[in-house]
Structure formats: C-alpha cells, structure tokens
Amino acid sequence: MSQEKAFIKDESLHNARRKFLKQSSALTALALAPPSLIKAADGNLDEKASALFEKQSLKIEVNGIQHELSVEPRVTLLDLLREQLHLTGSKKGCDYGQCGACTVHVNGKRVLSCLSLAIMQDGKKIRTIEGLADGDNLHPMQQAFIKHDGFQCGYCTPGQIMSAIACVNEGHANNEDDIRQNMSGNICRCGAYPNIVDAIMEVKQKGGPL
C-alpha cells in the first residue's frame, strides 16, 4: 500500500470514529467507552470526550528529515517508525524492553523505541538503522558486521548495530569484557556474540566519529 493510500485510510477511520462518538446512543457508549468518557457523555460533553481518542500533533526529525505527524498518545516510537513512517529496519522483537531489537538513537542516545511513547519525543532527533548509510556507502559499523559475520538470521542486527555505535561513542568499548557488559541489552538468539564483539573492537580501534 502506498503511503498516500495509507494516510487516506487512516483519516477516514479517524473521521468515522468521531462520527460514531457524536451519534452513538448512551447505551452503546456505555459498553465501549472508558469511565471518563462515560462521565463526559453524561454531561453532554461528547465533543470534549472525543479528545480521549483524538490524535495529538508531533514534530520529530527522523534520519535528518522533519516530520509533522499526528498520533494517538498510546503509539510507541517503534510503531510510529514502522507503521506510519514505514521504516521497518527497527525490529519488534519482544515489544517489552527485554531484547534490544528496537534500539534507536534519540538525541544521540540509544534507547528502546518499544518502551518510548512517540508523543514524548516531540522536538527530538531520531536516528534509525536506515539513517546510517551514506547512499551506497555503508556505515563503518555496518561494514564491520558484514566483515566479521556479526549475524546469522539478522533479526536483531539493526538493534545490535545501533547499540554498538552508541557503545563506542559512550566510551564503553575499551575491551572485550567492556563491550560484552555494555551490549548486554541486545539479545542474539543465533549466538553471533563473538563476531559482534570482533566487529565492535575493529570499529573502536579504527577510531573516528560514528
């Protein structure tokens, strides 16, 4: 589905929801609505109540591109990246902050996008795996992962690479133990750990900004 179509579909759903809220009988609302909505409906505050389902505006920069979006408060940064911006490089592994596959950089710091609410990132700069390569030239960490065979199935790799870059930038890649300790938030079920450590060691030794 093209981005444009996705947008239209999304908007029509949104409008339908508003219409439903305005027209629905008290009984239907009672069955479907959260308590505060019911309270608001009691006071004929339908318009105000719909705010609960209303999207809020959000300005973020992702990989150097400015986006003005509207999101429901419950949308995570990971879902925003994958579903709205179609940047599917960041992976949904566990979705509960345990695996690290969703790791991205927010204002230069590595964080878990699955446990970050998109609306809380207003005004921030996001960097994802898609923002690393310069055209056909891969980022040094991407090159090192390929050279050292730092993956097998590849599912955890975007998170591993984003975390690895931060690990070096933080000054936490001084030796093998240091790397293992500071990469422990990224799980690799294929067990590519020794090769991931080699890749990070090489990038660290070469130096230079990442």
């Binding site: 959260p34 308590p35 505060s36 609960l52 408060p73 419950r74 995570t76 979705d95 509960y96 902050g97 878990l112 446990l115 970050s116 609410l117 609306i119 809380m120």
Partner: peptide
C-alpha cells in the same frame, strides 16, 4: 510518566491503565 520503562510495559500488558499520563 518520565522514562516510562516500567509504566509503558505495565500498560501494554494491561496491568495498569491510567486515563491520563502527565509527562
């Protein structure tokens, strides 16, 4: 809500469901 590392996790699982979050 501040870091949200535990609260968002709990909300996803339905353990807690606040009607309003104050960032």
């Amino acid at each position: 809500i501040a870091g949200g590392t535990n609260l968002v996790d709990l909300m996803k699982r339905g353990v807690v469901s606040p009607e309003k979050l104050i960032d």
